[in-house]
């Protein structure tokens, strides 16, 4: 999968999750917390997962 497509998938999933959480809790995060949420979901978590998977598959 190309990096662009993977990015698009991750961004879309993050936005969808944000919308679902907002609709269920009836509370939307303020802009600063929303930025934190997007950075964690789009960058920090995938990076951590990649790092863990990379470590596991390393010889």
């Amino acid at each position: 999968m190309s990096e662009d497509r993977r990015d698009l998938l991750i961004y879309s999933a993050a936005i969808a999750l944000y919308i679902v959480i907002g609709l269920f809790t009836k509370r939307l995060l303020s802009w600063n917390l929303a930025f934190l949420y997007f950075v964690v979901v789009i960058e920090v978590i995938p990076r951590t997962v990649r790092r863990l998977l990379g470590r596991r598959s390393a010889p």
């Binding site: 609709l23 939307l28 929303a34």
Partner: peptide, 11 residues
């Protein structure tokens, strides 16, 4: 700002 704007517009 773009993704936040889009997400809250839809929400």
């Amino acid at each position: 700002y773009f993704i936040y704007g889009f997400a809250r517009m839809v929400s």
